[in-house]
Design a protein around this nucleic acid. Structure first.
Lengths: 192, 192
DNA sequence: TTTTTTCGTTGACATATGTCAAGATTTCTC
DNA sequence: GAGAAATCTTGACATATGTCAACGAAAAAA
């Protein structure tokens, strides 16, 4: 149940068995079925989720009621609305299971506790945020000022694994293009 | 010279005079004239810069030789290419002074030293990255899947201070639209 | 100041992408 | 396995945004 989390921590911070045990004890396992929500817009996000199994995604709802996908997350990764988590303000995000999931939840209090009492945990989160920031920056580079085709190509290159696991229209939304446009682009690319 | 940096640290982590002094001793002040570079693409980014005075921006160069602005930074903020800084790989970014600047540079070794030896510094950077991540996420929300006008309006709302300090064509680039389009949008908005 | 460079605006036109609607496929659910 | 949802594809058309080129205004450099 905690395999991937332990792996994730050990890969970033050398830790003793005790420290790991202490960390583990603050998480709550939770199963989620496909289409169930971890967070709904309007609520305050009070926890972060580490995915041991399955896939999740987050999205906002725009003025016309359409989804705008912000993030995909799979086994071994975290998902949350950090904005709401840190500021304690209402979230604009929905976080939903794309597949049946096994999650490890860490709520805000436990997070604070670990930060204060387990130095390795602070280092772990620092590295996590560091990497998350860099990843987001790269996403931005792969988005702004590019044509729809360029965006998709970059995405396909970088995240080929995702493509077979996520509905196409969600990828379109993630890239900020319409499903129709994406469908046409794929057809074009295939015909070369 | 160190006023804003000290302020920035104190705002995030309660620290003693000694700790602050220790931190300060690892930074190198540097002046930069308008149009001078802190980093050029192809080099490895070996330092982060805290801006005590002035304004900087970072950008990539696309296939057709055009600029794509990634970030603006002013007094009290940091600028760097964290991707290159952490991975030690060649940077694709240029970081250039928009105005004459007074910077405080922290190179990679000093950064590592502070992380190891000053717990407050690790907490400071953790919070810094946390905030940077959230800010970037919000930028993404204000970019993907919006019309040019929506992007500009959100930007103008959120960063009204920047608008009077940065050439318009750089803002256009930052938003991923052409200078011509931005000019037209501004005209439209003004006529209401 | 004068000169030069950078920056912003505007017009005419081209084009990528969005919109709407219908039908075909695939995937879930019972 | 049958029916129901969800997803993907395609066409016709609308429209936002990009491109190219020229000019004027503003700012920097000399």
């Amino acid at each position: 149940m905690f395999e991937l989390l332990i792996k994730s921590i050990q890969a970033k911070v050398p830790s003793t068995e005790e420290e790991l045990q202490l960390c583990k004890s603050h998480f709550t396992p939770k199963r989620l079925r496909r289409k169930q929500f971890l967070l709904q817009e309007g609520d305050v996000c009070n926890r972060t989720a580490f995915i041991e199994k399955g896939a999740m995604y987050s999205y906002t709802t725009d003025a016309k009621g359409g989804q705008r996908v912000m993030q995909f997350a799979f086994e071994g990764f975290w998902i949350s609305d950090l904005y709401s988590f840190f500021t304690r303000e209402e979230s604009k995000l929905n976080i939903e299971a794309l597949e049946d999931c096994e999650l490890l939840l860490l709520d805000h209090e436990q997070h604070e506790y670990l930060l204060k009492n387990v130095p390795q945990y602070e280092t772990y989160t620092r590295i996590l945020y560091q990497n998350a920031y860099v990843a987001l920056q790269q996403r931005l580079e792969g988005t702004i000022g590019l044509t729809a085709e360029e965006k998709y190509s970059k995405f396909a290159e970088q995240y080929s694994a995702i493509i077979n696991r996520v509905p196409q229209h969600l990828i379109a939304s993630y890239l900020g293009i319409t499903p129709e446009t994406l469908s046409r682009i794929r057809k074009q690319i295939a015909s070369r």
